[in-house]
């Protein structure tokens, strides 16, 4: 464990807590893409299949359980909670995320570290995570204005993978064997997808204006 990875995990954890706070405090999920949340739930379930078979560390196990439970809780809230689901922007959240799922799985079957069920699902979760934010970014573009908590959520989510890139650079130089090309390349693509959001987020912060994404 290095400081970059710890910072990344904490940023990721905070982003999920910010989202849960927004939904719980405002009893609203307006501006949040259910499709992105469903993709994240799939990412965690597909990636943490080894949760009960391989014990790596207490920290690792606790964080996996937190990520799986929180992502499922958010999806449940947005689908089933009678108050929250009313504020879901169903007509704006129209990204065809099923295509993302099929494509990522297809790529994972071709490009993986080892052609086993677990490695294919692991690669699938890595690729899916890279593109999971797309429905959310499209929804933000469509809805124009971004409320603070949702903006912070996306910003933190982008920051977490950026920290992980520093972690991979660190591990590349420190450890003799670097076998994380799938994660590193996919993580770069993932962070690049946030680039335009980061740009507008920084502008809104600099001009102390409300975050407004060009339609």
């Amino acid at each position: 464990m290095n400081i970059f990875r710890l910072a990344g995990d904490m940023t990721h954890l905070i982003s999920v807590l910010v989202l849960l706070l927004k939904i719980y405090a405002t009893k609203s999920c307006s501006g949040i893409s259910l499709k992105t949340q469903e993709l994240y739930a799939m990412v965690f379930v597909a990636r943490y299949l080894d949760l009960f078979t391989d014990y790596i560390s207490f920290y690792n196990t606790v964080m996996k359980i937190v990520f799986i439970l929180s992502s499922l809780a958010i999806v449940w809230c947005m689908r089933m909670h009678r108050v929250v689901k009313r504020s879901y922007d169903k007509e704006l959240d129209t990204f065809r995320h099923n295509i993302l799922i099929v494509v990522c799985f297809g790529v994972a079957v071709i490009i993986n570290e080892k052609f086993t069920l677990r490695e294919v699902f692991w690669a699938f979760s890595i690729y899916l995570e890279a593109v999971a934010i797309l429905p959310q970014l499209v929804l933000l573009q469509r809805s124009g204005n971004v409320d603070n908590l949702t903006g912070q959520y996306v910003f933190l989510l982008g920051g977490y993978r950026a920290f992980y890139i520093l972690n991979w650079i660190y591990r590349y130089f420190v450890e003799q064997r670097f076998s994380r090309w799938i994660s590193a390349i996919s993580g770069l693509i993932q962070t690049a997808l946030y680039a335009d959001f980061f740009y507008y987020y920084f502008l809104s912060w600099k001009n102390n204006a409300k975050l407004h994404l060009p339609a």
Binding site: R5, D9, H12, D50, D54, I56, S57, N60, M63, K64, F67, E113, K114, T116, E119, W122, Y164, N167, R177, S179, R180, S183
Partner: peptide, 10 residues
């Protein structure tokens, strides 16, 4: 081999 290394990252 790299595939056997435990995935210690989240």
């Amino acid at each position: 081999s790299s595939a056997d290394d435990i995935k210690d990252e989240l």
